[in-house]
């Protein structure tokens, strides 16, 4: 099993954190993991992305050229990464902010109204967690329990107060994907 995930969106949407959550959870579950953020010139409002690998094997290159999963939170990210996804890979699209359909026919696509679901969970900014929940449901890679236990280990101290909302967002994303599938 090797999952190569690219998570991309606006700076401030928490894509780096979402990637770190996957990496941490993978480590807890005994997998080999790596996480590389895009760095430096990105800032709130710019684009940001990270590459996460979760594997039973030793990870040679930590760089992801062809992701098996692409999670996009905004439209520029979809445009940038759509073509790179491996054939029969997955694309998870934040439908709340992306008004364009995926053109590829050889991938599995799931549209998630992540901002809307996050609002319902208690904070629109938890859209990253909604997408993580949805990804969990479609890949079945980790249990919801491990990922929720990992959450406080990767979130900065000042954002621990959103833990309950984030957990709810993960659950609601998970349920949405289960029902959509």
């Amino acid at each position: 099993m090797t999952q190569k995930v690219i998570i991309a969106g606006f700076g401030g949407q928490g894509v780096i954190l979402a990637g770190k959550l996957l990496a941490y959870t993978g480590m807890v579950e005994g997998k080999n993991v790596s996480h590389i953020p895009s760095y430096g010139v990105e800032m709130r409002g710019g684009t940001a992305n990270c590459a996460v690998i979760i594997s039973d094997q030793e990870i040679a290159s930590p760089l992801v050229v062809h992701p098996t999963s692409l999670i996009v939170l905004n439209k520029p990210s979809l445009l940038k990464f759509e073509d790179s996804v491996t054939p029969s890979g997955r694309i998870l699209v934040n439908e709340s902010l992306i008004d364009r359909e995926v053109k590829r026919k050889d991938v599995v696509v799931l549209y998630v109204p992540a901002n809307k679901i996050a609002e319902e969970a208690g904070n629109g900014r938890s859209s990253n967690m909604v997408m993580i929940g949805a990804w969990l449901a479609v890949t079945g890679l980790f249990s919801q329990k491990t990922i929720k236990e990992s959450l406080p280990r990767v979130v900065s101290k000042r954002n621990l107060r959103y833990n309950e909302i984030n957990e709810r967002a993960i659950d609601m994303g998970y349920e949405y994907a289960k029902n959509a599938g």
Binding site: K20, A23, M27, N32, V33, S34, H35, I36, P37, Y39, I59, P62, L63
Partner: peptide, 10 residues
């Protein structure tokens, strides 16, 4: 290099 510095691994 920048990858080694920025990368997170166990």
């Amino acid at each position: 290099d920048g990858v080694i510095g920025q990368m997170t691994e166990p």
